[in-house]
Write a protein that binds this DNA or RNA. Structure first.
Lengths: 230, 230
DNA sequence: TCAAAAGTGTTCGCTATACACCCATGG
DNA sequence: CCATGGGTGTATAGCGAACACTTTTGA
């Protein structure tokens, strides 16, 4: 028999945080999912999440979940919506404060945890547990809006990257296609990226410049209230 | 002695909704505040809000608060953030899911309720209870972002309005100044507003055209994924 | 008759877009 | 030597910002 130590005059909902973890593999945008080992929705995939502790804020809770799942101590995370449908959890009333995280996918190896975890491309995500389908759609929408005001995309790339990779990232997030040459000039024009001395070769037929994000320029532009056009 | 009827194995936070109600008086953007009658923060102003019931979603709760405070059955409301600092309420752990509402200010008479309620211009808002200063700043920021993607401003205007009123509204929300003539042409160009046959006189030195929001055109533009520039 | 407000027109400069072109490298 | 991918240049159209002009009406 469970011990029910906490007493209230009125009923209280449970509060959880869920974390939609976005990663980028150079071509496609992916999300990290964990397979549920217990009922309800046992065997279905879901976003990492769990109950909020009484001494932590929602962001601290989301960071804790992220750390437990990926081992990452620092990452960009952002609260985007709170889901509160009374029927969203069949067991009891659970409200979840949802965050999305942007991580460098190469730094995270999915699947080596006790719980099964894996990366899924956006167009290959299976039917999810609870209302997590809705949570994913909402997260994507929030990310697409945010990327017009803040260059959050850089959080998903390695420190040094080619413009081609940057373009693929924007195309994956916004689900559009850009002209290679115009994208090139636009990015250089904003001066949000700086060329680094080295050049990468990889599989290219020609040497490729590498760039890094120019945080100083970003802070300067942010001061003036800029907007990224796409 | 209070009766504590609800028992849980783990501690649960209380969950409330708070509603930042924006109104527009033709010149300035205002918010509706209520004066707290009980401790803590007795006598301080705060946003309408209250505990979420177990059978309602957060949006339903926010609408209920809005109805109780303004009598409005229908209004535009939008969830913008959930505040969860463990210390934000000195009594106990309270998480609040915050919404902002856009209402036609003339339809709402502040202050005739049992609780004292009043409209405050944005630059005359006093120090608020709890973390409501932060909530207000966050709400304003969210509104400013949103207005670039959705013409939510029309929710704040009467059904028929002049372009001058529309300009004042945008200037109040975004805290900028526009050239009267360019604003005129830009708005007509989007075709988001339609002229209505009547003309207003008011205090103008010349007859003024009245317009109404063109929802059909908006839905059409939204389909294509448009963005309002300012 | 004058001032204020409303509606319309014009110009200029920027930039998004659509392309053409050259260069370097691997096969 | 040619196909492929990378970097640069150029022309055009559209739009936003700045500003002149005309009309109407109240004082």
């Amino acid at each position: 028999m469970e011990e029910l130590k906490y007493h209230y005059k009125y009923p209280h909902p449970s509060v959880t945080t869920d974390c939609v973890i976005f990663g980028f593999d150079g071509t496609k945008l992916n999300v990290l999912l964990v397979e549920r080992g217990v009922e309800p929705y046992k065997g279905r995939w879901a976003f990492p999440g769990g109950f909020l502790r009484m001494d932590e804020s929602a962001e601290e809770g989301a960071r804790r979940e992220l750390r437990e799942e990926t081992g990452l101590e620092t990452a960009y995370i952002k609260q985007f919506h709170t889901f509160s449908d009374p029927e969203r959890d069949p067991r009891e009333r659970v409200i979840t404060i949802a965050y999305y995280a942007l991580v460098r996918q190469r730094h995270v190896q999915g699947g080596d945890d006790a719980a099964r975890a894996a990366w899924f491309a956006l167009d290959e995500v299976p039917a999810l547990a609870f209302d997590h389908d809705l949570i994913l759609r909402t997260a994507l929408n929030a990310l697409r809006h945010q990327i017009h005001f803040e260059p959050v995309g850089f959080e998903l790339l390695p420190e040094k990257f080619t413009i081609k990779e940057l373009q693929h990232l924007y195309e994956a997030i916004l689900d559009v296609k850009f002209d290679r040459r115009n994208f090139y000039k636009k990015m250089l024009h904003y001066e949000l990226i700086t060329q680094v001395p080295e050049a990468s070769r990889e599989e290219a037929h020609r040497e490729t410049f590498l760039f890094k994000f120019n945080k100083e320029k970003y802070d300067e532009l942010k001061q003036k209230g800029f907007k990224l056009e796409f």
